[in-house]
């Protein structure tokens, strides 16, 4: 259980994870450039949205995994996974703005305001921006305690993302995937509720601080 990678092993691990997280983007870019998808806009929209959600879940899984395995070094991979979440969310949004609306911002706003599933998806994306922007070491230092407070916004983003997915699939009554990913997010968030309720107050302060490491 007490696996602890050496600095070299950690670096290698991080590099592998980086490539794995980039792979879906490379695949989408390659297939689109090769003209394989029949409807490239749909292909990129769904692909980027799916991967934003998968990586969001991976980010949220770091703390529970760390607690269950005792592998505290996992937390040092979290920033990268979180930034990849933002990367795919950004790609998802850009596909919508560029290839669906051709930068017609007025039409985009009409969609955002008129259609609840887009409203919540847009909100989730906008809320991700400050998290990505404060991911640098400098920002972590500068914000101090507030950094951890700010980054709790992810607990709101995840349900918004699920709601977005749910309502999108509701158009075709196809709830299989939203149920799967909704359950995963549900478990990941409920674990936190459970732990925070069953943990004495003093210990809580210590772990909140260590989250920033």
């Amino acid at each position: 259980m007490a696996f602890n990678p050496t600095p070299t092993q950690f670096k290698a691990l991080k590099a592998v994870l980086f490539m794995l997280a980039l792979l879906p983007f490379l695949r989408m870019a390659w297939l689109t450039a090769a003209g394989v998808p029949v409807d490239p806009v749909e292909f990129l929209t769904h692909g980027s949205g799916d991967w934003a959600l998968y990586l969001l879940c991976a980010t949220l899984a770091v703390t529970p995994l760390r607690r269950l395995t005792g592998w505290n070094w996992l937390v040092r991979l979290r920033r990268m996974v979180g930034l990849f979440t933002f990367f795919y969310a950004f790609m998802h949004f850009m596909t919508f703005l560029w290839f669906d609306h051709f930068f017609d911002v007025a039409a985009m706003w009409k969609d955002v305001l008129k259609r609840p599933f887009i409203t919540v998806g847009f909100a989730a994306f906008v809320l991700l921006i400050p998290l990505a922007a404060t991911s640098t070491n400098g920002m972590i230092k500068r914000l101090g305690r507030n950094w951890a407070r700010l980054h709790k916004v992810i607990y709101a983003i995840a349900p918004l993302a699920i709601l977005h997915y749910w309502w999108m699939k509701a158009g075709k009554h196809n709830f299989e995937q939203p149920i799967v990913w909704g359950s995963i997010v549900g478990v990941l968030l409920l674990l936190r509720v459970w732990w925070s309720l069953s943990r004495p107050r003093t210990e809580k302060r210590v772990t909140t601080a260590s989250v920033r490491s």
Partner: peptide
Amino acid sequence: VDHPRWSQATERRIGEGGLFTPK
């Protein structure tokens, strides 16, 4: 008449150009 989740004002013609082709 929009679908509640999307506008029906435009459409993408399959196979007509690619990403950059206007609807």
